[in-house]
Computed example of a mutant assay.
Amino acid sequence: MNQWINVGDVMNMLSRIIKKRLLFGMSIVFISIGLSAIMTYVVMPLKFSSSTRLIAEIPESGDGNSGVSNVNFNLQMINTYKDIITKSNTVSNETYKRLRKSGEFKGTAADIKAMIRFNQEAESQMFSISATAENAYDAREIANMVAIVFQEQAAKVGTIAKVSVLEEAQLNIEPVSPKHTVMLLIGMIAGMILALVVAFILEVSDQRVTSINEVETIFSVPVIGTINLMSSEELSKKPIFANFDETLRKKKHRRRKRQRERL
């Protein structure tokens, strides 16, 4: 027999769980946000980025057949430049040597290779070289030096296209990562999900009957009355059965006395 899930019952159950464990869930959310804040503001280092823009172009030939063929050739050359910059060690090694001589960089050639990114603009002969580092000055110097070294390497390999720098990298003191707002939002969402999961697990594992509705659901009978739970102090102040025997004895004695009087 097919069993259909009642969405209303599910929503009611979730609502009941949230109301019952609201403080517990809020504590988990706040803890998650706090951990995200610690990771964002204390543990994760700030990173800065600078980029330089370049253009690849072929000198005009005198036959008048430049046009689309030259543009396509430039686009192919840009893909070659991307491989030279990001995959080959030539540019990163030479950049490292020059920066070490100037004493402005304390990392390695592998660090430089990991820092630089090649970004090609869609359907354009322009491209950019960006560098991301924990120091804004390092990011600017690396981006500019990589552009210079790449121009020299492109000339050495005998490419026809001419590479020119359109814009040098500028100092950017605004960090690009971590994104504080995004990280805190992720922490809040993760905390909410974790709180719901933990609350649901606790609710499912709790076998105690805590409401009249649960009694009626489990036993399929209506509840006609309830007895409130009394503390030991309330029981000591208001004894229910402490004088029951004495009261019963007095009643019997009065009844016997009345019967004798009638006789």
Rank of each mutant, 00 (worst) to 15 (best):
I5P: 02
I5R: 05
V7L: 12
G8N: 10
D9C: 07
M11W: 05
M13P: 01
R21H: 13
L23A: 06
M26G: 01
S27W: 01
F30I: 11
I31H: 08
S32E: 03
I33H: 05
G34W: 06
L35N: 03
L35G: 05
I38Y: 07
I38D: 02
I38V: 08
P45E: 04
L46A: 02
S50L: 11
S50W: 02
T52M: 13
L54R: 07
L54Y: 02
S61C: 00
N65G: 07
N65I: 09
N74G: 15
L75T: 06
Q76H: 00
I85H: 05
T86I: 00
S88W: 01
T90S: 14
S92R: 15
K97T: 07
L99Q: 08
R100W: 01
R100D: 10
S102W: 04
S102M: 11
E104A: 14
E104I: 11
F105D: 10
K106M: 10
G107H: 06
A109N: 12
A110S: 09
D111M: 13
I112L: 07
A114F: 03
M115V: 11
F118H: 00
Q120K: 01
A122N: 11
Q125S: 00
S128D: 06
A131W: 00
T132H: 00
E134L: 03
D138A: 14
V146A: 09
E152Y: 03
Q153C: 00
A155C: 06
A161C: 07
A161N: 04
A161F: 01
K162V: 12
V165W: 02
V165D: 00
L166K: 09
E167F: 02
E168M: 10
I173S: 12
E174I: 15
P175Q: 13
V176L: 13
K179A: 07
K179Y: 10
M183G: 09
L184A: 09
I186N: 13
M188A: 14
A190H: 04
G191S: 02
M192S: 13
M192D: 04
I193Q: 03
A195Q: 09
L196D: 09
V198F: 00
V198S: 10
V198I: 15
V198H: 07
A199C: 14
V204P: 08
V204C: 11
Q207M: 08
R208L: 09
V209G: 09
T210H: 12
I212T: 12
I212Y: 02
E214C: 08
E216Y: 04
T217Q: 14
S220W: 00
V221E: 00
V221Y: 10
V223Q: 00
G225P: 11
I227E: 05
N228E: 11
S231V: 03
S231Y: 03
S232H: 12
E234K: 10
S236M: 10
S236N: 08
P239C: 08
I240R: 10
F241T: 14
A242H: 13
N243P: 04
D245W: 02
L248R: 00
L248C: 02
L248P: 03
R255G: 01
R255Y: 03
R256I: 14
R256N: 01
R256H: 09
Q259Y: 06
E261A: 01
